[in-house]
């Protein structure tokens, strides 16, 4: 790359979109972010379908404690991040009834883990003289523009593998999520699937923390998936839509933040994802109203067993 051009485009920051890709930090952000968002969308589709948004929320707090714990002991934050989220994800799967964790148990565990994070934070900030004062904020709210090219590549690879893994178990998982009893009767290993899936949610949480931060990853997981489920009842279309919307939210967020430097990328990504959810919610309402006027029964989602 021509260094002169690079400096020129840096000086012209905010003047246009054309020189966007000239910046390594933007390229890294988009490379890692696209894979992370696609994985979050796919995982999120099942998280919403299985009503496990709360587990994702718990994992987000685990991510905080894990990353700061690693920093407190002088290790790469990502090691602690992934170790904590995957272990706790699997743990939630094993402890929860039938692979679905109890809300109160999750809440209690994650509150304590958050407390541990506060402990690690105090150890990290008081003991290490070389400590980065913003590390805490970066873990909580992400720093997608701060990814090095090595970090971005690794995040993209893990994101890609995660997408493949989710798609590989998608068929039986879909069956198990929609009708657990029938799936069990047909010989689907429902419990193992539930545990494996929560492990994958753990990986996803670790990934998303690098993009939008521990506290915001639930939005990247829940909002595009919730929007997709509002828009279509067909599972495969919904899965693709969830991934697509998540990637779109990330790109919009990165662009907005690039154009206006005062707006943090994490906020812009969340705002885009939330706007999509609101639009999908409105569209779903309009369609449902029209459907009921035409006296048809639109099956827009699986009917809960006890709703009859």
């Amino acid at each position: 790359m021509n260094p002169g051009l690079h400096v020129g485009s840096l000086l012209a920051t905010g003047s246009g979109i054309a020189d966007l890709f000239a910046h390594p930090f933007v390229r890294n952000a988009l490379l890692a972010g696209t894979a992370i968002a696609a994985a979050s969308g796919l995982v999120g589709y099942f998280v919403v379908l299985r009503s496990q948004v709360f587990s994702g929320d718990a994992l987000s707090h685990v991510a905080f404690a894990g990353a700061l714990g690693a920093l407190a002991f002088g290790i790469d934050a990502r090691v602690g991040l992934f170790a904590a989220t995957i272990l706790v994800g699997l743990g939630l799967g094993v402890l929860g009834r039938g692979g679905r964790a109890d809300d109160v148990v999750i809440g209690t565990v994650f509150t304590w883990i958050l407390g541990l994070g506060v402990l690690f934070l105090s150890i990290y900030t008081t003991s290490s003289s070389t400590g980065n004062g913003a590390a805490n904020v970066n873990v909580l709210f992400g720093s997608i523009f701060g990814l090095s090219s090595g970090e971005a590549t690794l995040a993209a690879v893990i994101g890609g593998v995660l997408c493949v893994a989710v798609l590989a178990i998608a068929r039986p998982l879909l069956f198990a999520s929609i009708d657990e009893a029938v799936a069990t009767a047909r010989g689907v290993p429902v419990r193992v699937l539930g545990i494996v899936f929560l492990g994958l949610v753990g990986v996803c949480a670790g990934e998303a923390t690098q993009a939008v931060g521990a506290l915001l990853l639930v939005g990247l997981v829940a909002a595009p998936a919730g929007a997709a489920q509002r828009l279509t009842s067909r599972p495969w279309v919904g899965l693709g839509l969830a991934a697509g919307l998540a990637v779109l939210a990330l790109w919009v967020g990165v662009l907005v933040s690039y154009v206006d430097g005062d707006i943090p990328p994490s906020f812009a990504i969340m705002a885009a994802a939330t706007a999509m959810y609101l639009l999908a919610y409105g569209a779903g309402r309009v369609r449902a109203a029209r459907g009921s006027r035409e006296a048809t029964v639109p099956v827009s989602r699986p009917v809960p067993a006890d709703a009859a």
Binding site: I178, L215, Y277
Partner: peptide, 21 residues
């Protein structure tokens, strides 16, 4: 009602992340 599909938790999760953002 029920746990097969929880619109509520998706809405709450989204509100929460957006609020923190």
């Amino acid at each position: 009602r029920g746990r097969a599909f929880s619109e509520e938790s998706a809405v709450i999760g989204t509100i929460q992340a957006f609020a923190l953002a």
